[in-house]
């Protein structure tokens, strides 16, 4: 059974990582006085995304639903988040690599091209969707019924075995 204190702590960590991610996405363009600052921010952001994905996966593994083998049930519920997380992480890494590559020699230069603009827009849009789905999923995983044996789970298990 998931303890309230543990869940609160995990939720706090997740939301803190999300807040940091939003902060970097919003204001990283302003903090480009030195390319190293942006580089560090981008690295931390990518690691934060990765950490968030790992945490949400661990939370899923911790559910009773997963432990009894109904992985498909969880995947069906949280497929959107998992796909978006992977997409967002990929887009973020690509954008960060591209921007840092262009701005490494001169940080205060105009580096925008149509391709970079498009990637930027897609990455930022994916970020917003990722925030929404991640927040929703992490709140959803606080449901105590996911961590205990329930009639609906037995029914689902019986259906899965058929």
């Amino acid at each position: 059974m998931l303890q309230t204190n543990n869940y609160s702590l995990v939720l706090l960590i997740q939301l803190a990582l999300l807040a940091f991610d939003l902060f970097v996405n919003s204001f990283s363009e302003l903090l480009r006085a030195a390319p190293v600052i942006q580089l560090v921010l981008f690295i931390i952001q990518d690691i934060a995304i990765l950490f968030n994905v790992i945490i949400i996966l661990l939370m899923m593994f911790n559910t009773y639903v997963f432990q009894v083998g109904l992985v498909s049930l969880l995947l069906e519920r949280f497929r959107a988040l998992l796909i978006l997380s992977a997409l967002y992480l990929t887009l973020s890494i690509c954008l960060h690599c591209w921007i840092m590559n262009l701005r490494w020699m001169e940080s205060n230069s105009f580096v925008w091209t149509s391709g970079l603009q498009a990637l930027f827009v897609f990455q930022r849009l994916a970020a917003v969707l990722y925030y929404y789905f991640y927040k929703r999923t992490t709140e959803y995983l606080g449901d105590p019924r996911l961590y205990e044996d329930c009639p609906w789970l037995r029914d689902a298990f019986a259906r899965a075995r058929q």
Partner: peptide
């Protein structure tokens, strides 16, 4: 640029809230 950053920040929160 700060205005653009602030726009994105507020729009992101507002959009997530509206989606919620």
């Amino acid at each position: 640029y700060p205005a653009q950053a602030l726009f994105y920040f507020l729009l992101a929160i507002s959009t997530v809230s509206a989606f919620d």
